[in-house]
Write a protein that binds this DNA or RNA. Structure first.
Length: 281
DNA sequence: GAGAGTGTTGTAAC
DNA sequence: GGTTACAACACTCT
């Protein structure tokens, strides 16, 4: 469930909570969820928390990285004594139930705080890699959608020979990284562009509009702390509230916020796709 | 109870 | 090379 805004929200919180902390022990409850050498991690201090696309990067004092992809159902939940005691936390009871049956990996810090990686569907992962492997991890990635250096001319060049629907093209990491299903549906509605339009059929103006709309919805998502649909949770168990301002995603049968027509749902490239047939042309 | 659906993405095949 | 279908998995909804 987490898309770029959710991952960025998590990154921001984690940066404050875990930078400077030493990882004492890594508990791996599910082998599949953790790749790489634990011994490269234990005893190391986290010096930074970065993000590229939807992947989090913990930079360690020995120049190794822990990469984290939450995929569909991953959560990173931070717990320390203050939180356990209630500490103004809204979901203290829930926090006390950790590790839950979906906890796959636990990072234990020397100050006794802990970071839980929960992942119901086990699609997500933690991966220990060196600096070179980080580069190769991203070798097939285009620029992040909110990268200010991304220009319309780039999109035009990448899309001019593509016939696949614009929605699918914009969701390909190799073209632009970070756009998932929810925000892509919303971006197309905001830009008033039909998701089925062949990529190559969009004019430069339309691409400009779409790029701007994509950044707008991503920004709104980040500002509101992400969208809480089903079980997305922030680092501290809080939820985001983008779902309250969502434009079309999940609103089949409801009125388009732009023109009032009924929002329809179709299946495109295997993904649920919501749009307004009236104003998205 | 069976079957479809879920916000991701890599891959294998056409 | 572009495009499509599906698998990885566990759970909820119809």
């Amino acid at each position: 469930m987490p898309e770029l805004p959710e991952v960025e929200t998590i990154r921001g919180k984690l940066e404050i909570l875990v930078v400077g902390k030493e990882i004492q022990k890594v508990e791996i409850l599910k082998e599949k969820s953790f790749q790489g050498d634990v011994s490269l991690v234990e005893g190391q201090t986290i010096v930074a928390v970065k993000r590229r696309a939807k992947i989090l990067q913990f930079v360690l004092s020995n120049n190794q990285y822990i990469l984290v992809h939450l995929k569909m159902t991953g959560q990173l939940i931070y717990v320390d004594d203050e939180i356990k005691m209630g500490g103004g936390h809204p979901t203290a009871d829930w926090i006390n139930d950790l590790p839950s049956k979906h906890t796959r990996v636990i990072l234990n810090f020397t100050d006794e705080s802990r970071l839980f990686f929960n992942d119901m569907r086990i699609f997500g992962w933690l991966k220990v890699v060196g600096e070179k492997s980080v580069k190769s991890e991203f070798r097939n990635y285009g620029p992040d959608i909110n990268d200010s250096e991304l220009e319309v001319s780039y999109l035009q060049q990448k899309l001019s020979n593509r016939r696949i629907p614009i929605k699918q093209a914009m969701m390909m990491n190799s073209i632009v990284a970070g756009l998932g299903n929810i925000y892509m549906c919303d971006a197309l509605n905001l830009a008033k562009i039909n998701p089925l339009r062949p990529s190559s059929s969009l004019s430069t103006d339309e691409l400009e509009t779409l790029l701007h709309a994509s950044r707008t919805v991503i920004d709104r998502g980040i500002k509101s702390g992400g969208a809480t649909i089903d079980d997305y949770r922030d680092v501290d168990g809080f939820s985001g509230n983008y779902q309250n301002q969502i434009l079309v995603y999940g609103r089949e049968g409801d009125a388009c916020r732009n023109c009032g027509a009924v929002i329809v749902k179709i299946k495109l490239g295997g993904r649920g796709t919501y749009f307004c047939e009236s104003c998205q042309v």
